Deep mutational scan, measured.
Amino acid sequence: IGSLMYASIFGNVSAIIQRLYSGTARYHTQMLRVREFIRFHQIPNPLRQRLEEYFQHAWSYTNGIDMNAVLKGFPECLQADICLHLNRSLLQHCKPFRGATKGCLRALAMKFKTTHAPPGDTLVHAGDLLTALYFISRGSIEILRGDVVVAILGKNDIFGEPLNLYARPGKSNGDVRALTYCDLHKIHRDDLLEVLDMYPEFSDHFWSSLEITFNLRDTNMIPGSPGSTELEGGFSRQRKRKLSFRRRTDKDTEQPGEVSALGPGRAGAGPSSRGRPGGPWGESPSSGPSSPESSEDEGPGRSSSPLRLVPFSSPRPPGEPPGGEPLMEDCEKSSDTCNPLSGAFSGVSNIFSFWGDSRGRQYQELPRCPAPTPSLLNIPLSSPGRRPRGDVESRLDALQRQLNRLETRLSADMATVLQLLQRQMTLVPPAYSAVTTPGPGPTSTSPLLPVSPLPTLTLDSLSQVSQFMACEELPPGAPELPQEGPTRRLSLPGQLGALTSQPLHRHGSDPG
């Protein structure tokens, strides 16, 4: 009997000691992992102490058991019943959930998450997105703005933001810190809205009876308010094209079509300037034949640059190039080494500058006005007194259609001029006259002087055409309008007829 009692007592005591040691061994194993994590990542002392304290409290609170892992091991129907039991206190005593059906309560219970916070733990920081609604079931918390405590909340209090009033989550206007050990039930806004969409009859009752104890939403960050730039940057990543407008005076608003859609830094370009900076079609017209890549860069430059609305530039004389043409100036200075066709295309550029300027006046029909002061630039669209967005969009579309028509007509005119030049060069190729044979009589004449090349004649003739079109064909006081194609086609051969009437002889060394 004594040996039996000794064996039973010894066996029970050893089993008890073994169970104690097993729990202690698990605790030390998990604690060792936490300390190894702290050492590996070199976490500083204040945060390291918070980690160790939280682990110790969580171990004593749950005995080292992962409740979520245990809950996920059950089937979904059983999980709903378990969640309904775990959140029964909240669902029974909170006013917004009263009167809900059994199915609605089960769906809500599945969406709730339980959070346990030790003292000093910050649940929400200032500036964080308010993605959830919090219900306090135990403990107390404090809300701070800077170093000032603005509120202390306790059991059955609710904090967050009214989700039904805002389409997008706002930002917190303060820090939420736990004063004691707290148990909180939180539900994400997407989950709550999903359940309320499934039960629309409960939705009206819920929003009407929901009383948020403390609204954390920062009202200064609401979209459309003066301080909402940061919020707009976070939620409006896919922005449309940006529009900046110059201020319109009362006198300017009476004149229709007073602005032109141009790229940034293009205030001095012609009315047909689009795409790359520098001139019509993204580059100076005089350098068009020598740089074919300008047409390839036109599309990307047009689509990537934001639109700006600026006044037209001052008018340019008909014979003056659009500006920024070092290529043609070098050719004029060193005409001995340049291609003979460069002079002809220089005359073509003069005609283009004249036609572009006159067509700009035809479509816009307003006098040039000086540029406004820099303080009046970049007025935002949302400022008071601005035109409605639809009106601005319609004006932009009208300007775009005008620019497209202008570009089409300029292309047709350019093709006409090039065809005339090619026809003239085919009839009378460039050549130098040879020395004529002296006559049989004693009164022999001296050799004839060489005839100037055709490109120079073409430049003079085209300059005469531009001056003739600019000065004589337009009646005084009438708006400057571009001439039609047949009129220009008839004027060019008439001007060139006198020049080509002389018999030109080919030089023996000319390969053409």
Score class of each variant (00 low, 15 high):
residue 127 G to W: 01
residue 128 D to I: 01
residue 128 D to A: 03
residue 128 D to Y: 01
residue 129 L to P: 07
residue 130 L to H: 03
residue 130 L to W: 01
residue 131 T to L: 06
residue 131 T to E: 11
residue 131 T to M: 09
residue 131 T to S: 07
residue 132 A to Q: 10
residue 133 L to K: 01
residue 133 L to E: 01
residue 134 Y to A: 02
residue 136 I to C: 07
residue 136 I to P: 03
residue 136 I to G: 01
residue 137 S to M: 05
residue 142 E to W: 01
residue 143 I to S: 03
residue 143 I to M: 02
residue 144 L to P: 02
residue 146 G to K: 13
residue 146 G to N: 06
residue 146 G to F: 06
residue 147 D to V: 03
residue 149 V to G: 03
residue 149 V to R: 07
residue 149 V to F: 01
residue 152 I to M: 07
residue 153 L to C: 03
residue 155 K to G: 06
residue 156 N to T: 08
residue 158 I to Q: 01
residue 159 F to M: 05
residue 163 L to G: 08
residue 164 N to A: 07
residue 164 N to Q: 08
residue 166 Y to W: 13
residue 167 A to H: 13
residue 172 S to V: 01
residue 173 N to L: 11
residue 178 A to H: 01
residue 180 T to N: 08
residue 181 Y to I: 04
residue 181 Y to K: 03
residue 181 Y to F: 07
residue 183 D to Y: 09
residue 184 L to D: 01
residue 184 L to Y: 10
residue 184 L to E: 02
residue 185 H to F: 07
residue 185 H to R: 07
residue 186 K to N: 08
residue 188 H to D: 11
residue 189 R to S: 06
residue 190 D to P: 03
residue 190 D to T: 10
residue 190 D to S: 07
residue 190 D to L: 04
residue 190 D to V: 08
residue 191 D to H: 03
residue 191 D to W: 01
residue 191 D to Q: 03
residue 194 E to I: 04
residue 194 E to T: 07
residue 195 V to C: 08
residue 198 M to V: 09
residue 200 P to Q: 05
residue 200 P to Y: 02
residue 202 F to N: 06
residue 206 F to R: 02
residue 206 F to E: 01
residue 207 W to Y: 12
residue 207 W to P: 03
residue 209 S to P: 01
residue 210 L to W: 04
residue 211 E to H: 10
residue 212 I to K: 03
residue 214 F to M: 12
residue 216 L to I: 03
residue 216 L to F: 02
residue 220 N to A: 12
residue 224 G to I: 13
residue 224 G to Q: 09
residue 226 P to Y: 08
residue 228 S to E: 12
residue 228 S to Q: 13
residue 230 E to P: 13
residue 230 E to S: 10
residue 231 L to I: 14
residue 235 F to K: 10
residue 236 S to Q: 10
residue 236 S to F: 12
residue 238 Q to C: 12
residue 239 R to L: 11
residue 239 R to S: 12
residue 240 K to Q: 10
residue 241 R to E: 12
residue 243 L to N: 08
residue 244 S to K: 05
residue 244 S to Q: 10
residue 244 S to D: 15
residue 245 F to Q: 10
residue 246 R to E: 08
residue 247 R to Y: 09
residue 247 R to F: 08
residue 248 R to V: 10
residue 248 R to H: 13
residue 249 T to W: 07
residue 252 D to I: 08
residue 252 D to Y: 12
residue 253 T to G: 13
residue 253 T to F: 13
residue 255 Q to Y: 12
residue 258 E to C: 13
residue 258 E to I: 09
residue 259 V to H: 13
residue 259 V to R: 09
residue 260 S to E: 10
residue 262 L to M: 13
residue 262 L to T: 10
residue 263 G to C: 10
residue 264 P to W: 06
residue 264 P to G: 15
residue 267 A to Q: 10
residue 268 G to P: 12
residue 268 G to F: 08
residue 270 G to S: 12
residue 270 G to K: 07
residue 271 P to I: 12
residue 271 P to G: 09
residue 272 S to P: 14
residue 272 S to A: 10
residue 273 S to R: 08
residue 273 S to V: 11
residue 286 S to K: 11
residue 292 P to I: 13
residue 292 P to F: 15
residue 294 S to K: 04
residue 294 S to R: 05
residue 294 S to D: 15
residue 296 E to M: 04
residue 298 E to Y: 15
residue 298 E to S: 11
residue 300 P to C: 09
residue 302 R to T: 06
residue 302 R to S: 10
residue 302 R to M: 12
residue 304 S to R: 12
residue 304 S to V: 06
residue 305 S to I: 03
residue 305 S to Y: 15
residue 308 R to W: 03
residue 309 L to T: 15
residue 309 L to A: 08
residue 313 S to I: 13
residue 314 S to R: 11
residue 315 P to Q: 10
residue 320 E to M: 14
residue 320 E to R: 08
residue 323 G to S: 07
residue 324 G to A: 11
residue 329 E to D: 04
residue 330 D to I: 11
residue 332 E to I: 09
residue 333 K to G: 09
residue 335 S to F: 03
residue 337 T to E: 11
residue 337 T to D: 07
residue 338 C to L: 09
residue 340 P to I: 13
residue 342 S to T: 12
residue 345 F to D: 09
residue 345 F to K: 10
residue 346 S to N: 08
residue 346 S to G: 06
residue 346 S to A: 08
residue 346 S to F: 09
residue 348 V to P: 14
residue 348 V to E: 11
residue 349 S to Y: 05
residue 350 N to L: 02
residue 351 I to A: 06
residue 353 S to V: 02
residue 357 D to N: 05
residue 357 D to W: 13
residue 358 S to Y: 15
residue 358 S to R: 09
residue 359 R to K: 04
residue 359 R to M: 12
residue 363 Y to V: 08
residue 370 P to H: 09
residue 370 P to S: 09
residue 370 P to T: 06
residue 371 A to F: 09
residue 372 P to D: 08
residue 379 I to N: 14
residue 379 I to T: 13
residue 379 I to Q: 13
residue 384 P to D: 05
residue 386 R to Y: 15
residue 388 P to W: 13
residue 389 R to F: 12
residue 392 V to A: 15
residue 393 E to P: 09
residue 394 S to K: 01
residue 394 S to C: 04
residue 398 A to D: 12
residue 398 A to F: 13
residue 399 L to R: 02
residue 400 Q to M: 04
residue 403 L to I: 11
residue 403 L to P: 01
residue 404 N to T: 11
residue 405 R to H: 05
residue 408 T to G: 07
residue 408 T to E: 05
residue 409 R to E: 03
residue 411 S to I: 08
residue 411 S to T: 14
residue 412 A to V: 08
residue 414 M to S: 07
residue 417 V to N: 04
residue 418 L to C: 04
residue 418 L to K: 15
residue 419 Q to N: 05
residue 419 Q to A: 12
residue 420 L to D: 04
residue 422 Q to C: 04
residue 422 Q to K: 05
residue 427 L to T: 13
residue 427 L to K: 11
residue 427 L to I: 13
residue 428 V to K: 08
residue 428 V to S: 08
residue 430 P to D: 12
residue 430 P to K: 05
residue 431 A to T: 10
residue 431 A to Y: 12
residue 432 Y to W: 10
residue 432 Y to P: 04
residue 432 Y to M: 14
residue 433 S to W: 01
residue 434 A to M: 10
residue 434 A to N: 09
residue 436 T to K: 13
residue 437 T to Q: 09
residue 439 G to W: 13
residue 439 G to L: 06
residue 439 G to I: 07
residue 440 P to L: 09
residue 442 P to E: 12
residue 442 P to F: 09
residue 442 P to K: 04
residue 443 T to P: 15
residue 444 S to Y: 13
residue 444 S to R: 10
residue 445 T to H: 14
residue 445 T to Q: 04
residue 445 T to R: 08
residue 445 T to W: 06
residue 447 P to V: 11
residue 454 L to H: 09
residue 454 L to N: 15
residue 455 P to I: 04
residue 457 L to S: 09
residue 458 T to V: 05
residue 458 T to M: 12
residue 458 T to L: 08
residue 458 T to P: 12
residue 459 L to E: 13
residue 459 L to G: 11
residue 460 D to I: 01
residue 461 S to T: 08
residue 461 S to I: 09
residue 461 S to G: 11
residue 462 L to I: 07
residue 462 L to R: 10
residue 466 S to T: 08
residue 466 S to Y: 05
residue 467 Q to M: 13
residue 467 Q to I: 03
residue 467 Q to H: 03
residue 469 M to S: 10
residue 471 C to S: 10
residue 472 E to V: 12
residue 474 L to N: 03
residue 476 P to D: 15
residue 477 G to S: 08
residue 478 A to V: 11
residue 478 A to T: 08
residue 478 A to W: 05
residue 481 L to N: 10
residue 483 Q to M: 04
residue 483 Q to R: 08
residue 492 L to H: 11
residue 494 G to C: 09
residue 495 Q to I: 11
residue 496 L to C: 12
residue 496 L to E: 10
residue 497 G to H: 07
residue 497 G to N: 05
residue 499 L to S: 11
residue 501 S to W: 11
residue 501 S to Y: 11
residue 503 P to H: 08
residue 503 P to Y: 14
residue 504 L to I: 07
residue 505 H to E: 06
residue 505 H to R: 08
residue 506 R to N: 08
residue 507 H to N: 09
residue 509 S to D: 05
residue 509 S to K: 10
residue 511 P to Y: 10
residue 511 P to F: 11
